[in-house]
Amino acid sequence: MASTAGARQLLRHPGAALGACGLAAVFAAATVAGRIAPDGHRRLSADFSQAPSLRHPMGTDAIGHDLFLQVLHGAQKSLQVAMVVTVLATVTGTTLGALAGYRGGWVDSLISRLTDLVLTVPVIVVLVVAAARLREQRESWLVIALLISVVAWPQTARVVRAAVLSVRERTFVSAAQALGASPLRILVVDVLPNAVAPIAVSATLTMATAVLLETALSFLGLGVAAPETSLGRLVATGQSAAGTRPWLFYFPGIVLVTMCVCVAAIGEGLRSALDPGRDDR
């Protein structure tokens, strides 16, 4: 088991450390802003379409929103979406993947077909069709997060299934079986801990995917609904302003890309920390 050594490895990985710090910084800033001025992102000033200044570090939009507060709020919403998706998709994917890999037979067939079902259909279609209908609900960010989870779990399921398959035949598992341990116990105690590395890595992938999918949906006008906002929504609505009021496009865009890069860096770090055998020479 590589957990403590892995953690040390992870911290030694400069990219991952940087990624973790970056993500934590965004999260902290958004939380603090949310505490200090809970409604700040919706407050309107008389400054319409102002370029960045001391008063408005990221400028304002056409009706006087302070973009800095909007970006912070949006980042918080995007992170919320990403977290919900990551947790849901990872739990679902791990459960189903482990079940398929461990039980085999018809369970495996059924789950594999289900996985195929989601992977054969371009993800965006499910989102587009469902989002068009459901996002009108209150708490649209949650709806969007649930929808993305529905399409995001199969990747994890596949990875976990493969990992479980390779672990299943190992001696310590057969030994546990011989000792009469229950299948659930074997799965949780013996099999899954050995699949932590791929699960963790695919969780980071899921997180980045969630942020990007939410952004894509916003661009298609199907993301988080007004008056809520998210980074994706800010980037998407700011796109038309890229040439004329660039701050509306670049600030949320930069924060968004930074966030995704941070997540990816953590994933890379996890990969090499938890699975040092596969690291480059």
Binding site: A216, G243, G253, V257, T258, C260, A264, E268
Partner: peptide, 18 residues
């Protein structure tokens, strides 16, 4: 490649268009 993977596709498309 990490940055590219973290970039929204439509953002990249808009950039290339410009």
């Amino acid at each position: 490649s990490m940055v590219l993977l973290a970039t929204p596709v439509f953002w990249l498309a808009g950039l290339l268009k410009d």
